[in-house]
């Protein structure tokens, strides 16, 4: 993994968050009210439910993503594509020999497609499920869609799981840049809310949908930098926060945490000389994308600051796995 990478730009498709400045404000504001929506899963035993969620989010595809052949592309892949196409990249990324990687994190990609194939397999004769749904029913739809539509022939990686996957996606992109597999990387994360995802949703959090993407490139010059990714257990991660806070020269200016556990955020914030923001409180539950948004949120806070700023992004999963990353501006 290289010592650091630079953030060239960001693309966002989040509920009522247009840009990094709005994201920085949203993290600090009181949680926004959630719109109640009705979710159904036809041809199943699942009863429709009404639930307050952050969303829906419309893809609003930029021209760069093209418009043809998108009818059968799943909603989450369209959100991913829109956020990636909105992310400023180096001009070289559009040349044939370029090896810009696409690395994506999602807990929900392909979930409604998988379930729909299962429902069709139950209600239709064998061999009659929609052929277009199956290949879109794995986790890698967003990364594949971004790579294919934007013509990016560098490594194509998808991570899934909980919140740490969003930070691990950045760690793996940094690794691919360091090994030379990739010249740069579009790293992103996404989530959608469906009747299917609600079967596993956490009662105490607001489910949310959206996508975000960062363009990373080898570190050069001023701007926002990412460095010091650590992936470890909660004990070591807590020690990192406490040790960093103890000395002025290592003390961060803030901490952005992605976790399902609000109590953990309160515990880590207790007695700290810097502010602590909680992704899920502000933006809702985005699964694996939560960890990624901790980094994007930290970048947004750095960008909004008027002086050089250093913010730690941390993702913690219920099993105790953690991932953290230092985000700084010069």
């Amino acid at each position: 993994m290289p010592a650091s990478v630079a953030v060239r730009g960001a693309g966002l498709r989040l509920s009522e968050v247009e840009d990094l400045a709005a994201l920085a404000r949203r993290l600090s504001d009181a949680p926004a009210p959630a719109a109640v929506r009705r979710f159904a899963a036809p041809d199943t035993v699942l009863a429709p439910v009404e639930r307050g969620v952050y969303g829906p989010v419309e893809p609003r595809l930029p021209a760069r993503a093209g418009s043809r052949g998108l009818r059968s592309v799943p909603h989450e892949s369209l959100l991913a594509l829109a956020s990636a196409a909105d992310t400023p990249t180096r001009p070289e990324a559009r040349t044939p020999d370029d090896t810009t990687a696409v690395v994506w994190a999602s807990s929900t990609a392909g979930l409604p497609e998988y379930a729909t194939v299962c429902a069709e397999a139950s209600t239709l004769d064998p061999g009659f499920v929609a052929p277009a749904l199956g290949p879109a029913s794995a986790y890698n739809g967003p990364a594949a869609t971004v790579s294919i539509r934007l013509g990016l022939a560098g490594p194509n990686l998808t991570l899934t799981g909980g919140a740490t996957a969003g930070i691990s996606a950045i760690a793996e992109a940094m690794r691919l840049i360091a090994t030379g597999d990739a010249s740069a990387a579009l790293v992103g994360a996404s989530a959608t809310v469906t009747r299917w995802s609600l079967t596993a949703a956490h009662d105490h959090l607001t489910p949310a949908e959206g996508a975000a993407c960062l363009a990373l490139e080898p570190s050069a010059g001023p701007g926002i930098q990412l460095r010091e990714c650590q992936r470890t257990d909660l004990v070591h991660a807590t020690a990192r926060v406490i040790q960093a806070a103890a000395r002025p020269e290592t003390r961060p200016d803030g901490l952005v945490i992605s976790t399902l556990d609000a109590g953990l955020v309160d515990a880590l914030a207790s007695g700290q000389p810097f502010p602590v923001w909680h992704v899920e409180r502000s933006l809702g539950d985005l699964g694996a994308a939560g960890g990624f948004l901790a980094v994007v949120g930290a970048a947004a806070l750095c960008a909004a600051a008027t002086s050089p700023t250093k913010i730690l992004a941390l993702a913690v999963e219920p099993c105790g796995s953690t991932a953290s990353l230092e985000v700084s501006s010069s």
């Binding site: 998808t158 991570l159 799981g161 796995s321």
Partner: peptide
């Protein structure tokens, strides 16, 4: 250490 779940196809 890291617990990474990769699903690239």
């Amino acid at each position: 250490g890291p617990a990474v779940l990769l699903a690239p196809g």
